[in-house]
């Protein structure tokens, strides 16, 4: 119960999405500066919560991902950022705040032209966060002793996402989810801007974390503190808002469409959005009979009802966040 906890935060720093998010025409505009100030308060509360708590911050930038800050790096004078001491602030808070802000602005300065922007490297950041936790959980043999194993931190990852799903990341994200399950890592997702993310919903559901769609975005700090500050062991006792629905849609292997009905190869389980004569993954040839039957049912369903067309435009957002908000309010009382 009273174990220390490790938190890895993954920041989605897609410049375009943040620009859109700050637009005053939004019902609840949220600029990156406001976001960062809320986030820093949250990070400081995590450090203040327990002395042994550790923290790592990863950034997903267009085309690359990197580690912005980690507690162990900050404790090592050879690698830590130089921070001017300030008699009016707690040293650890100051270190986190300064090194994070400095590194983010350094990365934003060297960003390329927005029109040639690559998708954000969320997978890179997520896999790095998992590898980092793996190292924490399996420290080098020379350092570990039997009594240490009881003090191993309770690990979790919080993803602050603003970008829509990149459908070509479906398989790596699923693989990351299964490794997180094996390491007993809880993945929490706070969707700060943009459409619901199907893959991150599944990540939170499969690892026992919460997926929260932020509707009233000026209340970011409240969401962060109420739902993501308690460690997974404490969440068993208090009620934190979890997600409403989980959408199990998957991405097809051929066009990377997100589909709810797919054609699956029986040999390798590859998913296709339309009947194909040969599996592109394992080269299995499918029987003509099956293809004809599938094409016929597909044609009739397309002309008949217009339903089951593979598309990502199903209304999914709105209601979940509202329910979460009422849940939060209930917690406040």
């Amino acid at each position: 119960m009273d174990r220390s906890s490790h938190l890895s935060v993954i920041l989605d720093l897609c410049p375009t999405q943040w620009l859109l998010s700050a637009q005053p025409s939004n019902p609840h505009p949220l600029s990156f500066d406001t976001f960062l100030s809320h986030l820093l308060v949250f990070l400081n509360s995590h450090i203040a919560y327990k002395h042994e708590n550790s923290l790592a911050i990863f950034g997903a930038l267009p085309g690359k991902s990197l580690l912005f800050y980690s507690s162990e790096e900050a404790g090592d004078p050879s690698t830590a950022e130089v921070v001017q001491p300030d008699p009016n602030s707690y040293r650890f808070f100051k270190t986190v705040d300064q090194s994070l802000v400095r590194r983010i602005s350094r990365e934003f300065d060297i960003l390329g032209q927005p029109d040639t922007e690559e998708p954000c490297a969320l997978v890179g950041a997520l896999t790095k966060a998992i590898c980092y936790i793996n190292r924490l959980l399996h420290p080098a043999q020379s350092l570990s002793s039997p009594e240490d194993s009881a003090n191993l931190p309770d690990p979790r990852i919080l993803i602050l996402s603003v970008s829509p799903d990149a459908s070509n990341s479906y398989i790596p994200i699923m693989n990351s989810i299964f490794s997180a399950q094996k390491l007993k890592i809880t993945i929490d997702v706070c969707k700060t801007f943009g459409p619901d993310s199907v893959f991150l919903q599944q990540a939170a559901y499969l690892t026992g974390g919460s997926y929260i769609y932020l509707e009233h975005r000026e209340a970011l700090l409240q969401y962060l503190v109420m739902s993501f500050l308690p460690t997974p062991s404490i969440r068993k006792i208090i009620t934190v808002p979890t997600e409403d629905k989980t959408d199990f849609r998957a991405a097809c292997f051929c066009h990377k469409h997100v589909v709810d009905v797919g054609y699956v190869c029986s040999v390798c389980l590859s998913i296709f959005c339309q009947p194909v004569p040969v599996c592109s993954t394992c080269r299995t040839k499918f029987p003509m009979k099956t293809l004809q039957r599938l094409n016929m049912t597909r044609a009739s369903s397309l002309t008949g009802t217009g339903a089951s067309q593979p598309s990502a435009s199903r209304p999914t957002n709105g209601t979940p966040a509202k329910q979460v908000y009422t849940g939060l309010a209930a917690n406040l009382r």
Binding site: F248, D260, V261, G262, Y263, V267, P275, K285, L291, T297
Partner: peptide, 21 residues
């Protein structure tokens, strides 16, 4: 061996409703 083995199957991926619905 392709002719002997594989087949294409139609499958649906559902939406899960939580116990609070």
């Amino acid at each position: 061996p392709g002719s002997a083995g594989g087949d294409l199957m139609l499958m649906g991926f559902p939406t899960r409703l939580p116990d609070t619905s």
